[in-house]
Write a protein that binds this DNA or RNA. Structure first.
Length: 210
DNA sequence: CAAACGATTTTCT
DNA sequence: GAAAATCGTTTGG
């Protein structure tokens, strides 16, 4: 269809996020383009690594057992909001809230490949030369895109933060599924293959056990 | 109100 | 490869 030419640069609709299979959403996010546009600073990167967090039944999730706190509250919203929080007192981690309201599922975005506004990203990261670690790793990409904890609860339907489908297709064979990073405390749930990344992409974070 | 901890990154050896 | 840096959130008294 010719219409596809016009649809190929679309902001993902709420229906993308409200699906009930968080693992599916995590995989589908690979190849999509995360855009931030704060105060005229336009930056964009293709998502190359994600992790699924399956809420109440997932020991690795902040919302395990339907735990509700001021921090986790945003995960109980309907899919399509940003969940951003601070880890290790230093790093801001960007997550996408999925599923319907009252079901606290989320996808952590762990790495993107920079596409636009690379100069702005390097400025934010205080880097002189372009290296993969500009945006490889959840804390790094958040800093590069200018995302901080104050953005938690922001809508992913725009205008400040949104995710586009630019028609990039990642073939199933290009997607690797492995265990998540930094969740050893989650016991048996730490073994779940909930981390997904694009094979051979140099912006995928090192993590542990690659 | 005090204390422990962590979906990490960087730096140094 | 190992360790330090660093602070908001959560939890317990």
């Amino acid at each position: 269809m010719f219409a596809n030419l016009y649809l190929s640069n679309m902001i993902l609709p709420a229906s993308f996020y409200t699906r009930k299979d968080v693992v599916r959403v995590a995989k589908d996010l690979l190849g999509k383009v995360l855009v931030t546009n704060f105060e005229g600073q336009y930056t964009a990167g293709m998502i190359v690594e994600t992790e699924a967090y399956a809420g109440a039944s997932d020991k690795a999730s902040h919302a395990f057992g339907n735990r509700r706190t001021r921090r986790t509250e945003v995960m109980y919203r309907e899919g399509g909001a940003a969940y951003v929080y601070l880890i290790y007192g230093i790093h801001h981690l960007f997550n996408v809230v999925t599923h319907l309201a009252e079901v606290p599922h989320a996808v952590l975005v762990r790495a993107v490949e920079p596409l636009e506004g690379i100069d702005i990203m390097m400025q934010r990261r205080r880097m002189e030369v372009l290296k993969p670690n500009l945006t490889s790793g959840p804390g790094a990409l958040s800093q590069a895109l200018g995302i901080y904890t104050k953005h938690t609860g922001y809508s992913l339907l725009g205008p400040d933060i949104y995710i586009e489908d630019r028609g990039i297709k990642i073939k199933p064979k290009e997607i690797a599924a492995v265990t998540r990073v930094g969740v050893a405390y989650a016991q048996e749930d730490a073994l779940l293959p909930y981390r997904f990344y694009v094979r051979d992409n140099k912006y995928v974070s090192k993590g542990k056990g690659l």
